[in-house]
Write a protein that binds this DNA or RNA. Sequence first.
DNA 1: TTCACTATTGCCTCTAATTCTCAATAAAAC
DNA 2: GTTTTATTGAGAATTAGAGGCAATAGTGAA
Lengths: 149, 149
Amino acid sequence: MYTTTSLKAELHERGWRMTPQREKILIFFQNLPEGKHLNAEELCELLESQGEKVSLSTIYRNLKLMARMGILRELELAEGHKNYELNRPHPHHHHHLVCVRCGKTIEFKNDSILKTGIKTAEKEGYHLLDCQLMIHAICPSCQRSLLPA
Amino acid sequence: MYTTTSLKAELHERGWRMTPQREKILIFFQNLPEGKHLNAEELCELLESQGEKVSLSTIYRNLKLMARMGILRELELAEGHKNYELNRPHPHHHHHLVCVRCGKTIEFKNDSILKTGIKTAEKEGYHLLDCQLMIHAICPSCQRSLLPA
DNA sequence: TTCACTATTGCCTCTAATTCTCAATAAAAC
DNA sequence: GTTTTATTGAGAATTAGAGGCAATAGTGAA
């Protein structure tokens, strides 16, 4: 799991800098309950409401950066914007089952998928950041509804 | 596998209509080599270059529709726009390993993941449309490069 | 076949998520 | 401290995709 110190170390490795903004974002995600994910705008508002204002530009930049470092997972759920959550290690690692009509999302865990992901990346010489099974489906209540698409 | 006739039948089930535009899009994807995927704009240009002009709005509308019907798969690769490919059944079904830096994508197959997807959706009463393992990683050549992010 | 109904198309405008620009600020190294 | 340059904040720019609407054309019934 990432700490402020390990984030700083990893940033420095690449010639980047630790900033209060980056720390705020990391700490915010660490305090977020498991299974909760949010988008840039929501994060911006929540930080501000805690008196920890970080500009929206900076949030966009750092969400992307931290996803590319493997600290955050970028989720493409059904809402048309990216959501982020902490990329937690093994026993917390999970996947998503999403209703393409109403967006209702269920999380589930499965160790063998994670293993497959690790093995596949390794085989190709890729450095793994995240691996998520996305199941697109129609939830029971949307199946019952006769509304189009 | 979908045919023009089965698409028409399924559309009619929901009170929708078959149109030449929808047929063109379906046929285009059926003739696309496996492993090739494209976005709305590319599809529009390619159809036009074949003398099969369909407006971009219509393409956007129908890509979405056909993805929600389970005919197409919507892929969120690294380029910032959605890509589509035919949602082929079992022996063709595959997953993606994507480099988050350069976007290089490798496809791989794995039956047990598909089985997990089917089982998970069933258990929750969801009607499965698509199930894809997305592995975000850094490819060997980007690991070697010292360029930031 | 023809008709009436309404889903769909095409064109164009609009929206909203994300990126870009750039001057000011502030980490980090010496 | 001083210097260097990555990062920030504010706002402008971009762009994938959605929305509005009049014209068109599938479909099912007569």
